[in-house]
Design a protein around this nucleic acid. Structure first.
Length: 296
DNA sequence: AACCAGGGAGCGT
DNA sequence: ACGCTCCATGGT
């Protein structure tokens, strides 16, 4: 209904499909040649262009900083890739396979809540749970005429006043009490998620792990995808498997040694490297995986 | 430190 | 159809 606004964001090396489907975000829908989602409470439609990204939203937009920040369009991907270890054939193959994969900058609460829901769930199922949660308890946002209705991710306050059974109805199973407890910790101020942005990496990680249902892996996802800590490196079962196989000759490695290796080997943009490895693993067939063995 | 906590996709039979 | 395994894990 509302008058729309549009903008063209010029950016090189940006693969919108790969980025929005890479398991960083779970609330984006692809339709025909565009993606629709909700960023900071605003409905947005994004389309890939050869020289950048075309965006449409509702209402008058004078300042598109919120969208540029979310998409991280000001990041020079070539400068990031230049910091990767040049002698690592596995990482180079992962980058080659998916040039233009980017890291987004999400809102901390949505990211934290989404990854609490991600534990031992496949990405398609996480997407389904998040959609149900938004439709059930999130605010409806203004959309342009002709588009299906969309809902914002529920705020911590909106979730905090629910019952566990309300959340279980969204098919999140044993994660329901974790999400509820975390929402209440945020609302009560027991943990200050705004303050985390000002902390150093180790303090920030320790702060996030205070939440019920948040361990190192989920904390690292939030540190990387929402707070933008460039060396945060989430290690899930797949990434662990490939790290052990490629860099430790299949030997069992203790988590502490693994972390030291990651920092030393992948460098200042280790988080970006992780995203390329993760995407490479997900898109590559099991056949290719078994073939691509060897030393880094 | 093994085991448990939804539920569904994906696979082989 | 049906059973089985696994899943961007953390808590006990």
């Amino acid at each position: 209904m509302a008058s729309g606004s549009e903008i063209f964001l010029p950016v090189r090396d940006y693969d919108l499909d790969a980025t929005l489907a890479s398991g960083q975000v779970f609330g984006w829908e692809r339709s025909n040649d565009s993606w629709t989602g909700v960023v900071f409470g605003r409905w947005v439609e994004l389309s890939q262009r050869s020289e950048g990204i075309y965006a449409r939203t509702c209402g008058e937009q004078v300042d598109w900083g919120w969208l540029k920040d979310f998409l991280q369009t000001e990041v020079s991907l070539s400068e990031v890739l230049a910091t990767f270890p040049q002698d690592d054939q596995h990482l180079r193959a992962a980058v080659r396979e998916c040039h233009g994969l980017r890291l987004l900058r999400q809102e901390p609460w949505e990211c934290l809540a989404s990854f609490i829901l991600s534990s031992t769930k496949q990405i398609v199922q996480i997407r389904q749970i998040v959609r149900t949660l938004c439709e059930s308890y999130g605010e409806r946002v203004l959309t342009q005429a002709g588009n299906p209705s969309r809902f914002a991710f529920p705020t911590a306050a909106q979730i905090a006043r629910l019952m566990e059974a309300d959340l279980r109805a969204c098919k999140m199973g044993f994660r329901a009490p974790y999400l509820l407890s975390t929402a209440r910790q945020v609302v009560s101020g027991e943990v200050d998620i705004a303050a985390v942005a000002q902390m150093d990496l180790e303090s920030a990680r320790a702060e996030l792990i205070k939440f019920d249902g948040v361990g190192e892996k989920i904390a690292d996802c939030v540190l990387l995808f929402a707070y933008g800590f460039p060396t945060a490196f989430p290690v899930d079962v797949w990434v662990r498997r490939v790290l052990v196989k490629f860099y430790f000759r299949g030997r069992n490695v203790r988590p502490e040694r693994m972390r030291r290796f990651i920092l030393k080997h992948f460098g200042v943009n280790a988080g970006y490297a992780q995203q390329y490895l993760f995407h490479h693993l997900r898109t590559m067939s099991s056949k290719k995986l078994s073939v691509s063995q060897g030393e880094p």
